[in-house]
Simulated scan of single mutants.
Amino acid sequence: MSELRKAAEVSDQEIDAAVDAVLEVLASEVYRLTEGWKLDLVGAIAGRKAAQDALLTDKPAYKRNMVRTAILLAHPVKG
């Protein structure tokens, strides 16, 4: 995901929306990004222990930062 962000194919607002989707309701459905990219949010979180642990805390800023990091480290697919 960070490569897409650096190439300006995905905006900060779209990343924020993906973070919000995780924090509101983490579903197994694929999350659609702009320009035909999609991301498995459950897989992104499942692949990062720190993000999983953060979701169990009562620290909103920490939770948001760890989820954002997991999303940035994820690998979206074209489709």
Score class of each variant (00 low, 15 high):
Lys63Gln: 15
Leu33Gln: 02
Leu41Asp: 09
Ala27Ser: 15
Ala44Trp: 04
His75Arg: 11
Ala17Gly: 10
Ala21Thr: 10
Gly43Asn: 02
Tyr31Thr: 10
Val77Met: 08
Lys78Thr: 06
Ala8Glu: 13
Ile15Phe: 05
Lys6Met: 08
Lys6Gly: 06
Asp58His: 11
Ala61Leu: 14
Tyr31Trp: 10
Lys38Gly: 02
Asp53Asn: 06
Val19Glu: 12
Asp16Trp: 02
Arg64Phe: 00
Ala50Val: 03
Asp20Tyr: 05
His75Asn: 09
Ala61Lys: 14
Pro76Ala: 06
Pro60Asn: 12
Glu14Gly: 09
Arg68Leu: 09
Thr57Arg: 02
Arg5Cys: 00
Glu9Ile: 13
Thr69Asn: 05
Ala18Arg: 04
Val77Glu: 14
Ile71Gly: 01
Asp40Ile: 07
Arg64Gly: 13
Tyr31Asp: 09
Arg5Asp: 00
Ala8Thr: 09
Gly79Trp: 01
Leu72Gln: 10
Leu4Cys: 05
Asp40Glu: 09
Asp12Asn: 15
Val77Gln: 11
Ala51Arg: 01
Lys63Ala: 11
Gly79Leu: 04
Asn65Ile: 00
Arg64Trp: 00
Leu4Thr: 05
Lys78Ala: 06
Pro60Phe: 13
Leu56Pro: 02
Thr57Gln: 04
Ala46Met: 08
Leu23Glu: 13
Ala8His: 14
Ile15Asp: 03
Val42Trp: 14
Gly79Met: 03
Val30Lys: 11
Glu3Met: 10
Glu14Thr: 13
Leu72Met: 15
Asp12Val: 09
Ile15Asn: 11
Ala46Lys: 04
Ala46Pro: 03
Ala70Ser: 11
Val25Phe: 08
Ala27Thr: 15
Asp16Leu: 07
Lys6Trp: 00
Glu9Lys: 07
Val22Thr: 07
Pro76Tyr: 01
Val22His: 02
Val30Gly: 03
Lys63Phe: 03
Glu35Thr: 13
Ala50Trp: 06
Asp16Phe: 00
Lys59Met: 13
His75Gln: 13
Gly36Asp: 08
Ala21Met: 07
Gly43Leu: 06
Ala54Gly: 01
Trp37His: 07
Met66Asp: 03
Val30Pro: 05
Val25Ile: 05
Ser28Glu: 15
Arg5Val: 15
Lys49Asn: 07
Ala27Lys: 11
Tyr31Ala: 07
Pro60Arg: 15
Gln52Leu: 14
Glu9Asp: 08
Leu39Asp: 05
Ala7Gly: 05
Val22Asp: 01
Asp40Trp: 09
Ala70Met: 09
Thr34Gly: 13
Glu29Gln: 12
Leu23Asp: 07
Ala17Val: 05
Asp12Lys: 09
Glu29Cys: 06
Arg68Asp: 00
Gln52Thr: 08
Ala44Lys: 02
Lys38Arg: 14
Leu72Gly: 02
Ala8Gln: 14
Asp20Val: 05
Ile45Val: 14
Ala8Gly: 00
Tyr31His: 15
Leu73Ser: 04
Tyr62Phe: 15
Trp37Gly: 04
Tyr62Cys: 01
Val22Trp: 01
Ser2Ile: 12
Ile45Glu: 04
Glu35Val: 08
Asp40Leu: 10
Leu26Glu: 04
Glu3Ile: 04
Leu41Ser: 04
Val25Trp: 07
Asp12His: 09
Ala51Leu: 12
Ala17Asn: 14
Met1His: 03
Ala44Asn: 01
Ala50Leu: 12
Lys63Cys: 10
Tyr31Ile: 10
Asp40Ala: 13
Ala18Cys: 05
Asp20His: 08
Leu73Gln: 12
Lys38Asp: 08
Gln52Gly: 06
Met66Ile: 02
Ala7His: 06
Asp53Met: 06
Val19Ser: 09
Asp12Ala: 15
Ala61Arg: 14
